[in-house]
Amino acid sequence: MNIPKMPAAAMQRRLKAHLKRGGLAAYPTESCYGLGCLPTHAQALRRLIRLKKRPQHKGMIVIGADLPQLLPLLKRPSENTQTMLDQAWPAAKTFLLPAAGNVLPALRGKGRSKLAVRVPLHHGARALCHILKTPLVSTSCNCAGKRACKTEREVRRQFGGKVMIIGGRTLGQKAPSMIIDGETGRRLR
């Protein structure tokens, strides 16, 4: 069984302060390390996009410890949608759902009205959101066009001291999370 390394209390406080200042963090998820920040911090999102050299029209995935943690970022989902999500998660399944009006365009992607959200299968990633009491942006930890980082060592090689690293192992899944349109049920990835 893959037991995640959870940061000690002092590290948790340091991580919270780092993220509140607009810092970036890397942490293990199902298939690779995720690169994230607070989804409400515009400066951090711009920093993340620049660091990855990511096209600005692409949206980001946001992960949470559970559905209630993600709800402030979404338009109120129907009872049927909430039931579907409760039955689907935790899993390596990302759903595109209508974003709340206050969600930053850089998070949705330019010209897009939906937000990609997931309650990850990776216990450590869920626990991190629970400990921090906030959802996190979760994009693959790599520069655009490069292979995603699968280990802490690869994160250090690719990004050096530009991100705070939360160590641990991925679940070893080969493919990134499935992306499903939450309104139509159509699989997009």
Rank of each mutant, 00 (worst) to 15 (best):
M1K: 03
N2D: 06
I3H: 10
A10Y: 00
M11H: 07
M11Y: 01
Q12D: 00
Q12P: 00
Q12T: 06
R14I: 07
A17D: 02
H18W: 13
L19E: 01
K20Q: 14
K20W: 05
R21W: 03
G22T: 07
L24I: 11
A26I: 02
P28Q: 08
E30C: 13
C32E: 05
Y33F: 15
G34M: 04
L35A: 03
G36W: 00
G36N: 10
G36R: 01
L38K: 01
L38P: 01
P39W: 05
P39C: 13
A42Q: 06
A44G: 07
L48T: 00
I49Y: 07
R50W: 04
R50C: 10
L51T: 05
R54Y: 12
P55A: 15
Q56A: 15
H57Y: 12
H57E: 13
M60T: 07
I61W: 07
I61R: 06
I63C: 08
G64K: 11
L67R: 02
Q69N: 04
L70K: 09
L71M: 14
L74M: 09
R76K: 14
S78Q: 10
N80M: 06
N80R: 13
N80F: 08
T81A: 15
Q82N: 01
T83M: 12
M84V: 07
L85W: 08
D86S: 14
D86E: 12
W89N: 05
P90H: 14
P90E: 12
A91T: 03
K93W: 09
K93H: 10
F95Q: 01
F95I: 06
F95C: 09
F95R: 03
P98G: 14
A99R: 01
A99K: 04
A100N: 01
A100C: 02
G101W: 04
N102L: 07
V103R: 01
V103Y: 01
P105D: 06
P105V: 10
A106M: 11
A106S: 08
G109T: 11
G109L: 11
K110V: 05
G111Q: 08
S113A: 11
K114M: 10
A116L: 03
A116V: 03
V117P: 00
V117A: 06
R118K: 11
H123G: 05
A125Y: 00
A127M: 03
C129H: 00
C129V: 08
H130G: 02
I131Q: 02
K133T: 05
T134Y: 06
P135H: 08
T139K: 04
N142L: 08
G145C: 09
K146Q: 15
K146F: 13
C149W: 01
R153N: 13
E154I: 06
R156D: 02
Q158R: 10
F159G: 02
V163R: 00
I166K: 00
G167Q: 11
T170Q: 00
G172D: 11
K174G: 10
A175K: 12
A175T: 13
A175L: 15
S177M: 13
S177L: 06
M178N: 07
I180F: 06
E183T: 10
E183G: 10
L188V: 12
R189F: 14
